[in-house]
Design a protein around this nucleic acid. Structure first.
Lengths: 300, 300
DNA sequence: CCCTACCTTTGACTACAGTCAAAGAAATAT
DNA sequence: ATATTTCTTTGACTGTAGTCAAAGGTAGGG
């Protein structure tokens, strides 16, 4: 991997210092107002209802601490806590009308704060700021996502394929038959690979490689969770999978895409793939692509 | 002022949430490590030495709280506290060699964290992120700066002119004579104005308006502190001063600039000023500009 | 049916962050 | 010379955040 230039590190750190001290701290202070910050955050996070378990993982809180805060909010009449109908170990928290009012008030305060800040800028500058922040957030999210090689039979791998199958089943006019998915053993070991992308511990994308014929690998199931799209994650998965393919001795990789997935086709072309004639009898294939890989560096 | 669009507010708030929770919180956690966060911040802020008074205002801490923390750091051998030689009410804090080591270690950790984040991006993406963050920070700083109309005799006004005079005295080949500065009464009241820009309570720029002849105002001493340059603050001061001029019934404003200040000349042209012949006998003038102002809106 | 894993609650703490008021010492203004 | 202001220190607090361990109830696998 390329070394990180000090200029980039400095800018990120300077921004971080400036932003957390000036904007973030202000925001926290206003959000809480007459309520402890922890409670205010919890209230906000409950939103349209959530289980304590979920809240705990989202906010990264200790179970006991959370339990007590939830109880305090319940005592204040802001939250109603019920037992999960299916799994009675779980507790569900939801806002009461009073809680909803409180959250609305939080939102109003935060909006006013943001408006106050933005009002110091001209409309053109506001647009520029919005664009910069959007770009920065996209890139920061992408940077925080890790791509890992997992076994084709790993639960996360299967979970990704489940969502993937449901996703394209809804998108293909003819639906999608799960029988077309790769088998775990095809995408594991010396000839195959399965990559899962994680954002904050949750799988948000995948990509699979299997052997097609000697020297030729096939890339399949490149998929990104809807909430993680437009970050450039698919390209990253693809690049990483190509590295894996080269390491496994493949000189060429092929793939097919459904005729309806025009964005995917554009991406493959942009990543150096060229259209080729049909190479398989996949019923979902509409376009076929191929890319030659560089020889892997010899690791002594 | 134009209303702030919800899109801009939403983007700013979303970014704020994401950044403070994900990046900022992480940073704080790593910075502190085995030391309370307050102490870690104080240590960092002391840097090459500072008075307790200064630290208090920079960090926004309670006097008692700060005094105790400083003492704790001194007891740990990280900080040396001495009495100010001129004003014995003041205490000066500076790092001991051990303190310096500790701060270096903090820096190393923070750098590693930033590098870890950036290493997930391609060099091109890193460049894009750096640029976005730079732009965003510029704009956020600008947005947080307030411009206020003050009396020409106000301490902040005179303080600005002092720094201004010293600044250009160093820049003009022939130096600068303070006698050329405006008098307080010229830039106050119905015919004059004095604007001071504040960033976090400190004056970081100024601009003055005085009467030149009936219907014609003169803009003078447009100045921005070196630490606040390249944010677009001069333009903002200028625009606000033009509003003040229009309000005071001036249909035209004029100004002159020294021949060496080429950036200033470019800015005036970009702001709608056009070159005119010499209109005064200012020894520092090298270029003369003029701009017609719109009629002020009638306030009933 | 039993065992294990999971989720929550409760009790008992700790440490950090921060506030307030009183008082002392030195500088500055009048 | 006196009054006022400024800066710091000290004592006495408070509230929030967060940790750890024990215990009790429930779900799911074998």
């Amino acid at each position: 991997m390329e070394p990180v230039s000090t200029e980039h590190v400095t800018t990120l750190r300077r921004f971080n210092r400036y932003f957390t001290r000036r904007i973030g701290a202000l925001d926290d202070h206003y959000l809480g107002q007459d309520r402890p910050l922890g409670e205010a955050r919890l209230l906000y996070e409950i939103g349209d209802g959530a289980s304590l378990r979920e809240l705990r993982s989202r906010l990264g809180l200790d179970a006991g601490y959370l339990s007590r805060m939830a109880k305090a909010l319940e005592a204040q009449g802001l939250v109603r806590i019920t037992v999960h109908p299916q799994d009675t170990r779980l507790r569900l928290a939801e806002l009461t009308p009073a809680g909803r009012v409180e959250v609305k008030e939080q939102n109003r305060r935060a909006n006013r704060l943001a408006e106050g800040l933005l009002s110091g800028l001209t409309p053109a500058q506001r647009g520029q700021l919005t664009e910069s922040l959007g770009t920065a957030q996209r890139l920061l999210r992408l940077a925080a996502i890790t791509v890992e090689l997992v076994d084709g039979a790993a639960p996360d791998a299967r979970a990704c394929l489940d969502v993937y199958a449901a996703d394209i089943d809804a998108r293909f006019p003819e639906g999608y038959d799960r029988a077309a998915l790769v088998q775990p053993h095809e995408v594991s070991g010396d000839t195959g690979a399965f990559l899962v992308a994680y954002e904050e511990g949750r799988p948000v994308g995948c990509a699979a490689l299997r052997r097609l014929e000697p020297g030729v690998g096939e890339i399949r199931h490149v998929w990104v969770h809807p909430a993680a799209r437009r970050l450039g994650l698919a390209r990253r998965l693809l690049a990483e999978l190509e590295r894996q393919a080269a390491e496994r001795g493949y000189g060429v990789v092929r793939l097919d895409t459904h005729a309806t997935l025009t964005e995917a086709q554009a991406m493959y072309r942009a990543c150096g793939y060229t259209g080729i004639p049909r190479y398989n009898d996949d019923v979902y294939g509409g376009y076929w692509f191929e890319k030659s890989l560089p020889k892997p560096p010899l690791i002594p």
